[in-house]
Each structure stands twice: as C-alpha cells, then as structure tokens.
C-alpha cells in the first residue's frame, strides 16, 4: 500500500445555491465529508477558470463548482456563463493542461442539500480511484 497524503477538494459555490450552512464548520469544512472545503461567492458566475487552475496548482485534489439550478440564477445568467466557460463554449475557458477529470459542476437549488453531500462524497471517491490509477502507473 502506498501512503497517500491527505489533500482537499475545494468547492466554489454560489451563496444562494444549495444550502450548506448547517453542514460545515467555520473554516468551511463539510462535517460529512471532511475532505471538502467550501468557498462562497455572491454568484457562481463570478468563478473564474483561473481560480480553478489556481486551486489545482495549489495542491487541491479536485474542484466542485456549484451554482443554482440552470434557469434560476438570481443575477439572471451567472450559472449559464460559468457552465459555458467550463465546457469551453465561452471565453475565458480552462487551460488545456487542466485535468478535466478533477473538475465537476453541480447546479442545485437551496433545498438539495442531501443531493450535494452525496455528489460530493461520490466525487471524493472518484478522485481516489483516479489517484490510485495514476500511482499504479
């Protein structure tokens, strides 16, 4: 067994999207998934692809981007914008070198807390398998 050192998954989230206030501590760490740290924005549309690159470069295991349900942005189109940027349909996009397997986006309304937690856990698991594959090589 190779000892894998603990790394974090960073969640960049709109403060109006899925409600995580009761799920995390003051540092933004999720109680049910301590690998995940949450950073809030006024709108998911504020998230820059650069920030995702910075997070991965700084050593984060993966990045979850989370906004409201598509169609329901409080600022009208923020979640559509970042979605298109992630998919490379709207500039600025992610650099080619970014490992796209380590980025996932969720569009969840305020009431979908359970769904978020289960998706976050699934993503953490997905990243672990990714790591074991790269280490095996």
């Amino acid at each position: 067994m190779v000892e894998t050192k603990k790394k974090t998954v960073i969640t960049l989230i709109c403060e109006r999207a899925v409600d995580l206030d009761r799920e995390m501590d003051e540092k933004g760490i999720l109680k049910d998934a301590p690998d995940v740290t949450v950073i809030k924005f006024p709108c998911s549309g504020m998230i820059q692809p650069l920030m995702i690159e910075a997070a991965l470069k700084a050593g984060a295991e993966g990045v979850i981007v989370c906004g409201c349900q598509i169609g329901d942005c409080y600022y009208r189109e923020g979640n559509k914008m970042i979605r298109e940027r992630l998919l490379g349909e709207r500039p600025p996009g992610l650099k080619k070198t970014v490992d796209r397997r380590r980025v996932v986006a969720l569009w969840l309304s305020r009431l979908q807390t359970k769904r978020f937690i289960s998706e976050a856990k699934e993503f953490v698991g997905h990243l672990q398998t990714l790591n074991s594959i790269t280490e095996a090589k």
Partner: peptide
C-alpha cells in the same frame, strides 16, 4: 454579481468586498 470578474482573464475587474486576491488566498489556504 461579479459576472464581470468571472469573465475577465486579466484580473482587471474586482468586487470591492471580495477581491480576486482574497479569493486566491482563501483557495491557497484551503
């Protein structure tokens, strides 16, 4: 809303209450 911040690839536009540099620091710390 900060959509312009998300659109700018040069960190050239900022929300005064949540600067790009604040976000970078939070991300690094996390």
């Amino acid at each position: 809303c900060g959509l312009c911040v998300g659109a700018c690839a040069f960190d050239a536009i900022d929300l005064p209450n949540l600067l790009d540099s604040d976000v970078s620091n939070q991300i690094k710390a996390a």
